[in-house]
Design a protein around this nucleic acid. Sequence first.
DNA 1: CTGTAATCTTTATGA
DNA 2: TCATAAAGATTACAG
Lengths: 245, 245
Amino acid sequence: MNERKIPHIIIDSRERKLMEIMSKKKETISFESQQLDIADIVISKDVACERKEGFDYVTSLMDNRLFEQLLRLKETYPTQILILEGLNDEVFETTGMNISSIYGSLAFISYKLGICIIPTRNMEDTAIVIERIAYREQVKDGVPILSRKAPKGMNDEERRAFILEGLIDTGPSKAKSLIEIFKTPYNVIKAIKNTNIVYTKTGKPKGINGPLEKIAGFGWKYVVKNKKILFGDSSDPQKKIDDME
Amino acid sequence: MNERKIPHIIIDSRERKLMEIMSKKKETISFESQQLDIADIVISKDVACERKEGFDYVTSLMDNRLFEQLLRLKETYPTQILILEGLNDEVFETTGMNISSIYGSLAFISYKLGICIIPTRNMEDTAIVIERIAYREQVKDGVPILSRKAPKGMNDEERRAFILEGLIDTGPSKAKSLIEIFKTPYNVIKAIKNTNIVYTKTGKPKGINGPLEKIAGFGWKYVVKNKKILFGDSSDPQKKIDDME
DNA sequence: CTGTAATCTTTATGA
DNA sequence: TCATAAAGATTACAG
């Protein structure tokens, strides 16, 4: 019972209320406040937590903020924990989001991204969870039994495709096929540069001619739109871009 | 819409009620019933789930049955998922078990044992989770981990910056300044191509030389990393990329 | 994340 | 060969 050594953690300075609750646990845990960019709570150099209240979880899911945060967390700390606070009926019913979407995201985060999910009822419970993890991590000198499936970040090919997804009308599918054929983003851009529009006698765009010609899914609109973005307006004075918008 | 292929799973024969619910999802998932020893639901040869209702979780935690089951699950399948069903106030209040113990066990299971935990409100929700995981595992298996979508109304300049945000270590701020200086993504990529690393006499990277030289925030690591992605490995054999990671 | 609407390319068909 | 229509695939958008 004599816990001479109590764990120490870092809490993001915006988590005011959490710190208030933590302050009441002075006997079992100590903390300091810092401006954290990546996580909400840092328990050790290896373990960091993101806390998400129910409504916040759903809204951050809608505007894609959630996965940005979690992926950065994943890049930065070896072990990542998402504390899901108060994901109750009210959240499911009032946000208007598909139930499938919510559970789909949870499944994705835990088993595809490999991020631990721990549900709590409220912030008091959240504090307990943090205190327990910190204790295990720092005091009980946990011999890490941890063996989780492949961490899997982005490899080069995925990263290259990822860049191309910034192009107009380019999702995962087109980006992937472009990289498979041209190998690098630079080659893809050169390929677009060297692809030209073919017009009918009457002056209407008919198709394309060049490196992209043989690849399924790429037509004249794709080339025109992306040339404009990649190289600027001047490339095709023959046809006003605005006509097609 | 093209869901001609629907996922197929195996459910333990004792899970009668779950099967009943699953039967109503015939359009999206099929299942068969088997006598399973180590899991409640088998989704693929790699993924298996244990379903635990709230009270059951606590009681099996008390008599140590829980960890026995989970450890066997872990030995048998590469990916293990614990579906925690209806762990609500009532469970916390009436079982008489310490709240800390409950949360301690959850923390242990997820971040030490590396078992995915997915909380659900009830068995209907559990069915949704299983359906989603099965879909990802069996149907939607080839998609990249991360894809991005451009924020809504974007003008040309914002779109150009957005493309560059796909580069490594490039956020909105760097992307914006690159576009302001070089005008188009193509020019930026040419600029990176024409920027070279400067080494010390001892062969250590010291700085950069070229178009990016004068711009704040871009150093040799930035150039090396992004050259590798944009142009492929060959550009700088002098220095192994892996050294810096 | 999911489900649906909008958009683009491609194939088919007739002028 | 061009123009139009329909089909198929992918992306964009809203919740």
